[in-house]
């Protein structure tokens, strides 16, 4: 059952080496930075198998039977919450949804108290979305449950980046050397921050483009090419990732009008023609049609936006499954099994 005895257990197309981990070392998934490159690939490989589960007539496996997962959402979310919930249910976990508006938060309870109260009920996992960066770090300090960051303020949205990488890999075969241009409201985007880390680890060349007022400082130091020219960003790109203009996070004026934003930064068919002939267009949603993306592009043949949504379930299943396994305790490659329950010698 140990990996050393079974080189055969690798899928032949897997890029993982023999020494690759077969479980995650981290208890929580707060940031892409928590994952080693091998662990990222393990998640993506596992997600491929999970995707098959979604094609069955009975789309449910018993892997997380008896696990309690709390979806604690302090910000509104349709896509991410639904995606997590479907993933949890497909793995047979017991799921509980807590939305901020219906909770004691509206009565003035602190996040720390909310978390401590949930923790007292011994959930196995908490999927947390919150408007404050680092909310997951606070939760991880207070809770024994595994914390999955489903978006913390402007910090990170790690599962979305994993979904994006999975979708790109599926379409392009791999990420190494790909030219990925991320265009839009970089400053307020947690998707951008997670993708920045993930894409660079997987060897993509990242170009970030947006208005000067929505740029991050020091981007060149992060290994990213930064430009305010959308034509420059699109030219020759293999992947174009558009980011939502997050008007709700903006204090004051970052650009004169939506109209001007669309004129300068919106993705149109004309602009898309400058990209590589087989370029794909991505968007983490929800989209502002006519602001960062023209409808013809969003609904066009290059768009993989709905594939991203579809892949979201498989990738989140992989994350849930692997984190549940990581809770068991020891490091990978440790001493082999207890002989007690004795699995058949079926290579497992």
């Amino acid at each position: 059952m140990a990996p050393t005895a079974e080189p055969s257990r690798r899928a032949p197309d897997s890029p993982l080496g023999l020494d690759a981990p077969v479980r995650l070392r981290t208890k929580d998934l707060l940031s892409i930075g928590d994952l080693s490159p091998d662990e990222i690939l393990l998640i993506l490989d596992t997600a491929e198998a999970m995707k098959e589960v979604g094609t069955r007539s009975i789309k449910k496996v018993p892997a997380l039977r008896g696990h309690t997962v709390v979806n604690l959402f302090f910000e509104p979310s349709t896509r991410t919450r639904t995606s997590f919930e479907i993933a949890e249910k497909r793995l047979s976990a017991d799921t509980v949804n807590v939305a901020a508006s219906g909770s004691s938060v509206s009565k003035g309870e602190t996040l720390a108290d909310t978390l401590r109260n949930l923790e007292a009920m011994s959930p196995d996992m908490i999927v947390l979305r919150h408007a404050s960066a680092g909310a997951g770090h606070l939760a991880a300090r207070l809770c024994g449950a595994c914390i999955i960051n489903a978006g913390d303020g402007m910090h990170e949205h790690p599962t979305q980046a994993l979904v994006d990488a999975f979708t790109i890999r599926e379409r392009k075969g791999g990420l190494a050397g790909l030219r990925v241009s991320i265009i839009g409201d970089l400053l307020h985007s947690r998707v951008f921050r997670s993708n920045l880390r993930l894409l660079r680890v997987l060897g993509a060349q990242v170009c970030a483009c947006g208005p000067a007022t929505l740029m991050l400082p020091d981007m060149e130091r992060l290994g990213v090419r930064a430009t305010t020219s959308v034509d420059d960003a699109v030219a020759g790109a293999d992947v174009i990732m558009l980011l939502r203009v997050q008007l709700e996070r903006m204090r004051g004026h970052f650009f004169p009008s939506r109209r001007e934003y669309f004129q300068r930064f919106g993705m149109t068919m004309a602009r898309l023609r400058r990209a590589a002939p087989d370029a794909v267009v991505m968007h983490p949603g929800p989209m502002n049609r006519g602001v960062e993306i023209a409808s013809e592009v969003a609904d066009g043949s290059r768009s993989v936006i709905l594939e991203q949504v579809a892949n979201g379930v498989a990738v989140r299943m992989a994350v849930l499954y692997l984190l549940a396994g990581s809770r068991r305790g020891a490091a990978p490659g440790g001493p082999a099994l207890d002989g007690g329950s004795g699995w058949d010698r079926a290579g497992e």
Partner: peptide, 22 residues
Amino acid sequence: ITLYRDDLMRHQVGPQPILRRT
């Protein structure tokens, strides 16, 4: 059969089985 195993949470040590496609 990885997702149907009854020991995901039972072993305190050892690697997690790798999930492959059916």
